[in-house]
């Protein structure tokens, strides 16, 4: 019961046909149940013709189940599932624009970049662009460190992408099962 009611970050992985208008239908399911979307990533999946949505949101387990069922009900949605962070490999990317004069003045800036395994992808006299790929906490740690040093001009994060820890690809299994029913 406690698990049912405790709020945590779930990652929803949704596969759909590639049809226009579906994104707003899927996000509307979250909005209607007053669940705020934390991140959203949509792109073609490894299965030809199928699109993959990776959405993160904070909610309880019962709500996660309900949202998934209501998303899967949409005619053009192939599959919808939700996962905790323990059940998936997670990655996201960030870009930071930092002040070049501050960076040259304070050696700790470059130290922090190295310490966090980030890369400097561009430098000019005004600013430098830093790129870092990792899990959310790594990225936020880098940002917090650089912010403390007063050099951050801009900061952007991508949405989360992830891959499940399962040995099989459920979508392919599902599609194979469905094709057997084609008359």
């Amino acid at each position: 019961m406690e698990q049912e009611n405790s709020i945590k970050l779930y990652t929803f992985i949704i596969y759909s046909e590639n049809v226009p208008g579906l994104l707003s239908q899927i996000t509307a399911v979250f909005t209607r149940r007053q669940v705020n979307i934390e991140s959203l990533n949509v792109c073609a999946s490894s299965t030809p013709g199928a699109h993959k949505y990776t959405i993160t949101a904070n909610c309880n387990l019962a709500m996660a189940k309900m949202l998934t069922a209501q998303i899967e009900k949409k005619i053009d949605v192939l599959q919808a599932n939700f996962f905790t962070d323990e059940e998936i490999f997670i990655n996201e990317t960030c870009l930071l624009k930092i002040s070049t004069p501050v960076m040259l003045e304070n050696k700790n800036v470059c130290r922090m970049v190295r310490l966090h395994g980030a890369h400097i992808v561009e430098v000019n006299p005004i600013y430098a662009t830093i790129e870092k790929t990792g899990i959310t906490s790594d990225i936020l740690s880098l940002y917090d460190s650089l912010k403390t040093l007063g050099c951050v001009l801009q900061f952007v994060r991508s949405g989360r992408i992830c891959i499940t820890k399962d040995f099989t690809e459920h979508l392919d299994e599902y599609l194979a099962e469905r094709e057997k029913k084609r008359k």
């Binding site: 005619i75 053009d76 949605v77 192939l78 094709e179 008359k183």
Partner: peptide, 8 residues
Amino acid sequence: ADFIRSYE
């Protein structure tokens, strides 16, 4: 129409 693979 009697089959839509995303709809059961």
